[in-house]
């Protein structure tokens, strides 16, 4: 039983991470019908901002050297600025294009950002250690809770609550929700399109920066493609949760995390290398049963 609880905690911890990325993707998709694959690169750049840009194998710390409140602020600010810049330069000009163009542009931005990191930091993976105090685990009733897992879950919960309050209580939050449901109608009713989309991107930047810190505390390694897998999982999370639904994205993220951990824990050894194939097979099954996603919108959806 303890083992199962342990597995469940592992699942919720990684699910929290995927939920945060899924939220970022879902938010931007909601207002712009853009699946922003560059979100993964926002995470990567946030992580790399901890070190000084150089090709050195052992990089000196940049933001990583700051006391942790300043470090968190700087990393998140970096990613927010990055998100806003990409929105302004790459995505806004294409806002009225068809969905294929938008998708291609997000790949282009992603590729560009990865090349940028390659150019500035070199191709060799690097390591950086932050949050070492969290590197130890607490044991409660035989269940092991590594500090970073606990932090991830607490941070995710906090961000979710803050985001919900923002969306429900603030004027721009309500307008953002309206824009996510029916962009054209919202504009007709005076919702400022540019501002709302910028806010969505800024939030995706805040989420991206937070995630990059959580991932680095966990893995301690910097790699150009570190944001790829979480983003792909997050994309699937939004699909099974129901595209355009924020609660769906969160639930989808937890489902992906739980599936991934359960399969790793309970598959026989020979099948475990194919764990991800298993996860995606189950995703396909879910979609066969409910193609529109779990929290699908009942209203007519402009896809």
């Amino acid at each position: 039983m303890t083992h199962f609880i342990q597995v469940l905690i592992d699942a919720v911890a990684i699910g929290s991470l995927y939920a945060l990325v899924a939220l970022a993707i879902g938010l931007v998709f909601g207002v712009m019908r853009l699946i922003n694959f560059a979100q993964g690169d926002y995470i990567t750049i946030g992580a790399y901002s901890l070190v000084v840009p150089s090709a050195a194998a052992t990089p000196a710390l940049m933001f990583g050297a700051l006391p942790w409140p300043a470090m968190i602020l700087c990393v998140i600010l970096t990613v927010v600025v990055l998100a806003l810049v990409t929105e302004r330069l790459a995505f806004r000009p294409l806002r009225n294009s068809d969905l294929t163009s938008l998708l291609i542009s997000s790949f282009a931005v992603s590729y560009f950002l990865q090349s940028l990191i390659l150019m500035v930091h070199g191709g060799r993976p690097k390591t950086v250690s932050i949050g070492d105090a969290l590197s130890r685990a607490v044991e409660i009733f035989g269940v092991r809770l590594p500090g970073v897992q606990l932090l991830t879950m607490v941070v995710a919960l906090t961000l979710l609550i803050v985001l919900v309050l923002f969306l429900k209580k603030t004027p721009i939050g309500i307008q953002l929700r309206a824009a996510a449901e029916d962009f054209q109608m919202a504009r007709l009713l005076g919702v400022p399109a540019n501002r709302v989309i910028a806010i969505a991107f800024a939030i995706s930047g805040i989420l991206g920066g937070t995630i990059s810190l959580l991932v680095i505390i966990q893995t301690g390694t910097l790699d150009i493609r570190m944001g790829l897998m979480p983003t792909i999982f997050a994309f699937f999370a939004t699909v099974i949760g129901g595209m355009g639904s924020l609660p769906g994205a969160v639930v989808g993220g937890y489902i992906m995390g739980i599936l991934s951990v359960l399969l790793q824990a309970y598959l026989p050894a020979e099948l475990r290398p194919f764990r991800d194939a298993g996860v995606f097979s189950i995703v396909i099954l879910i979609l066969l049963v409910r193609p529109q996603g779990i929290f699908a919108k009942t209203a007519k959806e402009r896809v």
Partner: peptide
């Protein structure tokens, strides 16, 4: 707006 409440649907134009 389907997922917004009745009140919120009417608040939107006011904000607008």
């Amino acid at each position: 707006f389907p997922k917004l409440t009745v009140l919120e649907n009417l608040v939107i134009p006011g904000l607008g």
